[in-house]
């Protein structure tokens, strides 16, 4: 079976400095795949390249069999990839509902269907529905993260990419976010999850990749990586 997303020997550079040095990975439809690694390993750079926000120097990205590494970002959203960026980056002055509507920007004209999706997001995160008219900037960090995930869902993506959704959250909030991801997985959504929190990410993932200074150093299925000695030492803080 051809994978939903396939990355081949991807190289991405900022000026002369290569941040991603030839990585390859695959995401099968319906899977949760996680990319874990420390600060500055190149996770965010990889995601931004997949969603068209950055251009690769070399390598290929295939989504559902088609090359997308030269396709502009707005077109990639239309093809079915949503990207929830690092640091949430919701629109603070807009209301919650306006944020969600913007998430559906690529689905122009389908007002009734967009309405349905908004209601589905409210069902997933009831807190968002209760405060739909409130400026998003007034939400707490965890609530903003829920909004960021909800906003990414608004484009009805076949693949949703999340960049460190647990960043800066309290353990309780983190648990809430991850249980939502479990729910999404149960609904069959394909997820590419970038995390520093290896424990949480790997217990959820079907497959995991470990990235260090721009290279994939390990790949295996989730439980296997959780048991891997190297991973336990480097990312789970065990001796």
């Amino acid at each position: 079976m051809t994978p939903m997303l396939e990355v081949r020997d991807l190289v991405v550079a900022y000026g002369a400095i290569e941040a991603v040095k030839g990585i390859s990975l695959q995401v099968q439809a319906g899977d949760v795949v996680t990319l874990i690694g420390g600060n500055g390993a190149g996770k965010t750079t990889t995601l931004r390249t997949l969603s068209g926000l950055l251009r690769p120097v070399a390598g290929q990205v295939l989504f559902e069999g088609e090359r997308i590494d030269r396709v502009p970002a707005h077109e990639i959203v239309r093809r079915g990839i949503a990207h929830s960026p690092e640091g949430r980056r919701i629109f603070p002055r807009m209301t919650i509902e306006e944020n969600l509507e913007l998430g559906a920007y690529s689905r122009r004209g389908k007002t009734a269907e967009i309405r349905d999706t908004i209601d589905r997001v409210y069902a997933l995160f009831p807190m968002l529905g209760e405060r739909r008219g409130q400026p998003a900037g007034t939400l707490s960090g965890g609530e903003q993260q829920m909004l960021a995930v909800g906003r990414a869902l608004m484009s009805q993506p076949r693949l949703i990419m999340l960049d460190e959704p647990s960043m800066g959250l309290s353990p309780i909030m983190m648990q809430k976010i991850f249980s939502t991801l479990v729910e999404l997985k149960g609904q069959g959504t394909t997820i590419l999850l970038v995390e520093q929190n290896a424990q949480a990410a790997l217990s959820l993932a079907d497959r995991g990749y470990v990235i260090e200074t721009g290279r994939i150093v390990l790949e295996d299925n989730g439980p296997a990586l959780l048991g891997n000695e190297l991973v336990r030492k480097a990312y789970l803080g065990e001796e």
Binding site: A73, H74, L102, Y105, S106
Partner: peptide, 23 residues
């Protein structure tokens, strides 16, 4: 309009606006 909303999004956070599929 939708265009006006997109402008506001660009003003607030251009990268996020691009990630939402705004040209």
């Amino acid at each position: 309009s939708r265009i006006g909303r997109a402008w506001v999004a660009i003003r607030e956070d251009e990268l996020a606006a691009r990630a939402m599929g705004i040209n």
